[in-house]
Design a protein around this nucleic acid. Structure first.
Lengths: 258, 258
DNA sequence: CGGGGGTTTGAGTGAGCTCAACTATCGTGG
DNA sequence: CCACGATAGTTGAGCTCACTCAAACCCCCG
């Protein structure tokens, strides 16, 4: 990943959400942080932990989840390259949920205090981070509706569409073909279904020729049809606010190859 | 409601979340706004609307909801006196969900632009509003887990506990007895259940002597037992951050009577 | 005292669950 | 290079929680 400073990615993301000047970006890149390479399944934050760091996901995938009384798990969000996984840790004192690596991942831990101090000193950064949090909230709302009111087929199709667009935005794949970085068990935990039922549902979507699967690579065979059964309208992702991220990243990659 | 300026309540809330100085509070109270009295069922914001205002709920109750393809509704949050109902409208351009009055309500509409300008000018306010948004998100996460992984009984008990503590914080009731300002149909929309099943579930909770009901007044007969079946742990509400709100409000009421 | 919204109850159905077995894939060490 | 074990995916059979449909019932308000 070149000589790029670790937090360049964060500066880009926030800049895309809400324009920052060069000094703002420099201040973000200069934020104190420690880089860690995590293995799949490793915990990045545990529920109940004292909240000290916020985490930028530099590569790989991570999920946030809660455990309920009967022992089952609910994944409340899935994150990928470029996402700030737990900005809430900057201002809230204890973690209300766990964050776990879904795949091997590179994570930059940034002290919450440094983030708050930066936000206090630089309004544009405060607003960009607030906006990131607002979009986070919009996705949560959609997920509440997803698990609360859609049946298994629609629910599954919906997140398949969401992942497609988010991976495309992150510059990781196209909207028509991407790696689903989670087991059916984990997918079930995200959808509020059992792994057995996820399996049958995916099979049904495949038999209906909406998707194709190979290992964990998902091909969306009929985007329009999948969008329809999944009742998917991407506006809650506010992609237009960060459209240039994928483009920037693609350009950087091209440049790196030469 | 006395001669208090309409936005005093907002200044108090934000100050409780993250300390503000007098100039900050004065600036909040001076924010441009229009007051409206809404009837129950009236829409405050409609999904898809151009987002122009954020709304402070001065009295009454409101809910936010999404409609899914099959026509059913999912309530994603319930709000009460003192809540900012849709801060996201300050920074996001279109509303991704609707806001509706559950009861008659007084609402202060504040232009999103004014809020952003204030946040940009006054870091302490930006951070307080960001924090409010973060707590909003924590509640959304809990609701995802609630509808995704808890059965009807636990799910219902859980929100009954949540409403108790939130109404207590707002100074509207005690945690042992409060008005549930919604029909069983609406409760079902919040829980991802049908109204029929909500009815049976409430009845079961009543027969188990965990709650008692009279019209829409809920009495929690056995808090500890209800908390347990509802798998309720209030930490996600971050009540300690705004403990003084209820106290302040109670004191103000006392003062007003004399 | 009639109408309308909300609540309650019953009866039957079905989507998604549980339990259990079997298969496929893949990394590891002999 | 193969055998093994572990992890993940697939399939079947039966069950149950919550749904649907439908009919009372209740209560408030005009």
């Amino acid at each position: 990943m070149s000589e790029q400073p670790a937090l360049e990615m964060l500066a880009q993301r926030l800049d895309a959400l809400s324009p920052l000047d060069e000094a703002d970006k420099a201040a973000i890149v200069a934020l104190p942080h420690t880089l860690r390479v995590m293995k799949a399944h490793e915990y990045i934050v545990r529920e109940g932990d004292k909240a000290e760091n916020s985490c930028l996901l530099r590569s790989g995938f991570a999920s946030r989840h809660k455990i309920v009384a009967n022992g089952s798990r609910q994944i409340v969000s899935v994150h990928m390259m470029g996402d700030m996984v737990n900005l809430q840790n900057s201002l809230l004192k204890t973690a209300d949920h766990s964050v776990q690596a879904l795949t091997d991942a590179e994570v930059a831990f940034i002290p919450g205090k440094a983030i708050v101090a930066l936000a206090a000193a630089r309004p544009a950064i405060a607003i960009a981070m607030w906006l990131d949090t607002l979009i986070d909230g919009a996705v949560f709302r959609e997920w509440i509706a997803n698990v609360g009111r859609r049946d298994a087929k629609a629910r599954t199709a919906h997140v398949l569409c969401e992942f497609a667009l988010r991976q495309e935005r992150a510059g990781l794949a196209t909207r028509n073909k991407y790696d689903l970085p989670m087991t059916q068990e984990q997918l079930g935990d995200a959808l509020g279904l059992t792994s057995v039922h996820v399996n049958r549902t995916l099979k049904a979507l495949e038999e209906a020729r909406l998707i194709a699967r190979d290992k964990r690579t998902v091909t969306i065979a009929d985007w329009e049809a999948l969008r329809k059964v999944g009742d998917f309208d991407p506006s809650y992702l506010f992609l237009e606010l960060s459209e240039e991220i994928a483009a920037t990243r693609a350009a950087a990659e091209l440049y790196a190859q030469h």
